[in-house]
Measured scan of single mutants.
Amino acid sequence: MAAGGDHGSPDSYRSPLASRYASPEMCFVFSDRYKFRTWRQLWLWLAEAEQTLGLPITDEQIQEMKSNLENIDFKMAAEEEKRLRHDVMAHVHTFGHCCPKAAGIIHLGATSCYVGDNTDLIILRNALDLLLPKLARVISRLADFAKERASLPTLGFTHFQPAQLTTVGKRCCLWIQDLCMDLQNLKRVRDDLRFRGVKGTTGTQASFLQLFEGDDHKVEQLDKMVTEKAGFKRAFIITGQTYTRKVDIEVLSVLASLGASVHKICTDIRLLANLKEMEEPFEKQQIGSSAMPYKRNPMRSERCCSLARHLMTLVMDPLQTASVQWFERTLDDSANRRICLAEAFLTADTILNTLQNISEGLVVYPKVIERRIRQELPFMATENIIMAMVKAGGSRQDCHEKIRVLSQQAASVVKQEGGDNDLIERIQVDAYFSPIHSQLDHLLDPSSFTGRASQQVQRFLEEEVYPLLKPYESVMKVKAELCL
C-alpha cells in the first residue's frame, strides 16, 4: 500500500493539533497551500530580480507567473513527485505547466533550498508574528487579574506546605514575570531571523556568478533584492546548502521555554482548584465526569500541561538535527523538520489560546482563602504575639514557653481530632496574655502579614508589564474561544 493518505478522510490519521486544537490561522501558515504558494512567490521574486539585473526574462513571463501564483494543481504535483521522487522539481514542473512561456526560467540558477529553506524562514517569521500578540493578550488578562487582587491576602506555599502570606495578585505576578520573559525572547528570536537568500547549491553562489558572467556586484544585488522582497532586513552571508540548523534550535528553545512557563502556571491553577481557592472557567453544560456528576475538573489547565510537556520535548529534535548536518548538509534534517517545526508552533498556539481562555474567566473564592488563612495564621502570628507581650512588660522566655504549650495543644486538636485551630481562643482565655487581649485582632490582621506584596504588584505592572504590552494595544480586544 502506498504511503500517505487522504487526510480529510475519517479513515486516515490526522494530527489532533490540526484537527482538534490549533487555530485556523496557525494551521494555514503550515498548510501545503501556504507552503507551495510561497515557493511560487519566491520563484517570481527571483525572476523579477534577475530581470532587473539584466537576464533575458520578459515582462510577459513575469506576468504569467504572477497570474498563476494561486493556480496550484495539487493532484498534478503529487503525481509528479511520485514520478520524480523530488518535491521541488515536482512543483517546478507543475508551475511550468500553467506558465508555459515562463517554464524555462522558473528556478533559474537556484537549488531546492532556495524555495525550501527560504519558505521555512518566512513561515517561522509569520508563525512567530501570530504567537506574539496571543502571548501579549494572556499577559494582559493576567495583569488585569493581578491588579484587581493585588491586596487580597492568601496563604503562600513553599514545598506545598503553608508559608508566609502573600497576595493573590502577587502570586499571579510570578506567572506574568515568566511570560514577559517569554514574550521578550519570542520577539528577540523573531527579529534575529535572517533570510537564507540566493546562495546556490553549497552556499557559494557559483551558479549565479556564472549567470551574471562573473559580476560579483550583481550577485550581491540579486541576494539583497530577493531578501528585501521577502520582507527581511538581512540575509546570511555564510550558508551551506541550507541555512544553519542552529536557527531551528533557537526558535524551538524559546517555544519550549514558553511551554515550561505555561505548565507551571496551569499546575498552580490545578492545585488551587483542589484547594477550592480558584477555578478555571466551567461552562453551564460542561460535564466533569461521566460517573461523578459533582466533579469540576480543571480540564483546560490539564490540557495545557499535557501539550506543554510535548512542546518542551520537541527542542531535542533540532538539537540532534543540527549535530548531524555533515559538511554542507545531509538530508537527516528533512523529514524531522517537516514534523517538529509545525508541531512546535501548533502546540504553542494551542496552549496560548487555551491559557487566554482560562485567564479571561478565572474565578476566585475569597471566603475559602480566608478560612485557610484562619487555619494557619495563628501559628504564624506567634512571633508577633511574643513581641507584643514583651512590649507590655512580659518575659520573652516565659511567653515563648506559654505559646509553645498552647500551640501544641491547638495542633493536637487540628491533627488528632480534625478540629479547627483554636490557638487564639486559648490565648484569649489565658490570664497571662490579658495585657494584649485587646491587640489580638490587630495582630491577626492578614494584611499585616503580606509585606509589600501589593506595592510590588503595582510597581511591576507599571514599570515592566504595561510598557512591554504597549506595541500590542491594537490587538488586545480579541477574545479566545474554545470549541473543545
Rank of each mutant, 00 (worst) to 15 (best):
A344Q: 05
K477C: 12
A146D: 00
P100W: 08
P366C: 03
D32A: 15
I287N: 06
S306R: 02
A230Y: 03
L193V: 10
I176S: 06
Y114W: 14
P298M: 07
G197W: 01
E148M: 09
F449R: 07
S395N: 13
E48Y: 04
Y21N: 04
L183A: 10
S31P: 00
T94P: 01
E401I: 08
M316E: 05
K218E: 06
L135H: 09
K35Q: 15
I237D: 04
Q397A: 08
S15L: 15
K391R: 14
S395C: 12
D215W: 08
L155E: 01
E481P: 15
R85P: 00
K284S: 11
S434M: 12
L469H: 02
S31H: 06
F208Q: 05
E302A: 01
G104N: 11
D441E: 14
A392D: 08
P16M: 13
P318M: 05
C173D: 05
L255E: 01
F95A: 09
A230G: 06
A410M: 07
D120A: 07
K264E: 01
R372V: 03
F379I: 05
C399D: 06
D73Q: 09
L443V: 10
L440G: 06
E64Q: 12
T244Y: 01
H97E: 12
L17R: 01
L469G: 04
K199P: 00
R125D: 06
S151I: 09
H437V: 10
D441M: 08
A256V: 08
L482W: 07
D120W: 07
S257Y: 08
T239D: 00
I72R: 04
S151W: 10
V189N: 12
G451H: 01
I62V: 12
G8W: 15
T321E: 00
S67E: 14
F236C: 06
R137D: 08
Q325V: 14
Y21S: 00
Q455E: 14
V92I: 06
M389R: 09
Q408D: 11
D32K: 11
L222I: 07
M292G: 01
E70I: 13
M225H: 12
G361Y: 08
R329A: 01
Q184M: 13
I238Y: 00
R190E: 08
A273Q: 09
G4V: 15
I403V: 13
T330H: 03
H263M: 06
V315C: 12
D430S: 14
A163I: 01
T111H: 00
Q456D: 04
E148I: 11
L362M: 13
H217K: 09
D182R: 01
C399R: 02
G5I: 14
W326V: 05
C172W: 05
S454P: 13
L341G: 14
P153V: 07
S257N: 09
